[in-house]
């Protein structure tokens, strides 16, 4: 579980990197240094109504003076990006949390393959900067419709040189994960982008025999399972022995809150990892996109995940 401090940062610069993507630079009005972070981290941006959106930091992790985010205007989205594009102009104040990382570079890896689809390239841009700075071996695959629609293209070209491979579907072949071939020792792969892309990467690499621990995926969109039918269930609180009933139309997080548990949360759509809690003795239906497979047997995200019939929570 974790809660993160929210800072009021000032927008220092706003530049359109594509017609739909704005690149925003934030500084702290009083502190010369912002909290440290590592490539792959994201922050929460608070909207005026209290909701939050998660955005990956895409600047240089070594530069503590600023945070850089690239935000795509999603006309059909949940409203956060429209508000951001309209309001976060230079001089504006934004409520930004300390960073959190669910998508870090694997420490021991010998080579890194980064695959970014559209705006999903943002965490990978930070990874490429870190890897380039330490002279590591990496390749960045950038997938977009065209060069004009590829976020951060110019700076990535300058940074990565021929380590950048662009796949523009309007004028060439699409990226095909099959080109990655069989797994090699010490090679880790990171994919971020639309679920279509990350699903294809995971499925193809799974068939090619890549171990799941070496394929890292992140996406800031909730799981796409429109057919899911929530069922009621009971949760037993390990520390107190009380049983709380979770009706079909209410999240476990909500029920716990009403019972007086101070549960942290942020996105409440299963993408940020803030509400994580432990469980045992039960079948959990995981519906988040943040918890790695290996931790799902005893951890869950109560904002979206549920249980079959009953579960015991480590609270």
């Amino acid at each position: 579980m974790s809660t993160r401090i929210v800072m009021k940062l000032r927008v220092a610069e706003s530049v359109a990197t594509t017609p739909e993507v704005v690149r925003l630079t934030f500084v702290h009005p009083q502190r010369p240094e912002l909290p440290a972070w590592e490539a792959g981290a994201h922050v929460d941006l608070r909207l005026p109504d209290g909701r939050t959106r998660q955005y990956s930091l895409c600047g240089d992790p070594a530069d503590r003076s600023r945070y850089v985010l690239a935000i795509k205007r999603e006309d059909a989205g949940r409203g956060g990006s429209l508000w951001t594009h309209a309001n976060l102009t230079p001089g504006a104040v934004a409520h930004v949390s300390h960073p959190r990382n669910n998508f870090g570079l694997a420490p021991g890896a010998r080579r890194h393959i980064l695959i970014g689809g559209g705006i999903g390239v943002t965490p990978l841009a930070a990874m490429a900067r870190s890897l380039a700075a330490r002279g590591a071996d990496y390749t960045l695959h950038l997938c977009a419709r065209s060069a004009g629609q590829a976020p951060l293209l110019a700076e990535l070209q300058a940074l990565c040189g021929d380590r950048l491979r662009c796949w523009f579907s309007a004028d060439g072949p699409r990226f095909d994960p099959a080109i990655l071939g069989a797994p090699e020792d010490g090679v880790h792969l990171y994919a971020c982008g639309p679920q279509r892309l990350t699903d294809a990467v995971q499925a193809t690499l799974g068939r090619a025999g890549w171990p799941a621990e070496r394929v890292h995926v992140e996406h800031f969109a909730p799981i796409d399972d429109a057919d899911f039918k929530p069922e009621p269930f009971d949760a037993l609180i390990a520390s107190t022995g009380e049983v709380v009933h979770v009706p079909a139309d209410t999240s476990l997080l909500e029920v716990l809150r009403r019972r007086g548990f101070a549960m942290p949360s942020s996105c409440e759509i299963g993408v940020c990892g803030s509400c994580e809690c432990g469980y045992r003795d039960g079948t959990v239906i995981h519906r988040d996109v943040v918890l790695p497979l290996v931790r799902r047997q005893d951890r869950m995200m109560p904002c979206v995940s549920r249980a079959r019939v009953n579960v015991t929570l480590e609270l």
Partner: peptide
């Protein structure tokens, strides 16, 4: 100003 907001001097 609110829970978990950074302190202001």
């Amino acid at each position: 100003p609110a829970a978990s907001y950074e302190m202001e001097e």
